[in-house]
């Protein structure tokens, strides 16, 4: 059986490491990107099942733009996009929603909860706050 593909997009090395550890070795086929352009390129090439997407990233494409592009691509639209952000304002969720994100988690978040959301593909109509359990 083929492993599910999961793409981690965050400009911070430590955070990517933490997500990597949380998701466990060998369970998923993991891809990583530190900026929007790389993330979009990997997504188009690998067609991942899940994308963990940081909102605030340097470069031309931030997380919202990447999400919008993925959801606009018919080949990628089915992929489960979980937005990660350090900003917790209502306007931010709204823009994530508009971009078609499936779920939204606010930093700091519980890695356990994140793994649960990813495994269950839980569509969160409300953002998960820091201590989201």
């Amino acid at each position: 059986m083929l492993k599910e593909k999961l793409l981690i997009v965050d400009d911070q090395d430590d955070l990517r490491k933490m997500l990597r550890l949380a998701l466990g070795y060998g369970k998923y086929k993991l891809f990583e990107a530190a900026d929007g352009e790389t993330a979009l390129a990997i997504a188009r090439a690998e067609k991942p099942d899940v994308i963990l997407l940081d909102v605030m990233m340097p470069g031309k494409l931030d997380g919202i733009a990447v999400c919008r592009a993925i959801k606009a691509d018919p080949e990628l639209a089915g992929c489960f996009v979980l937005m990660l952000t350090a900003r917790g304002q209502a306007s931010d969720y709204a823009s994530g929603d508009a971009a078609g994100a499936d779920a939204y988690m606010v930093k700091p978040f519980s890695p356990t909860k994140l793994v649960e959301v990813v495994e269950m593909r839980t569509r969160l109509d409300k953002p998960v706050r820091g201590y989201g359990f």
Binding site: M18, A22, F109, G130
Partner: peptide, 13 residues
């Protein structure tokens, strides 16, 4: 929130 995400996540792991 950014450094806290690391602290929170790693300690939980």
């Amino acid at each position: 929130r950014t450094p806290m995400a690391g602290i929170y996540g790693f300690t939980e792991l």
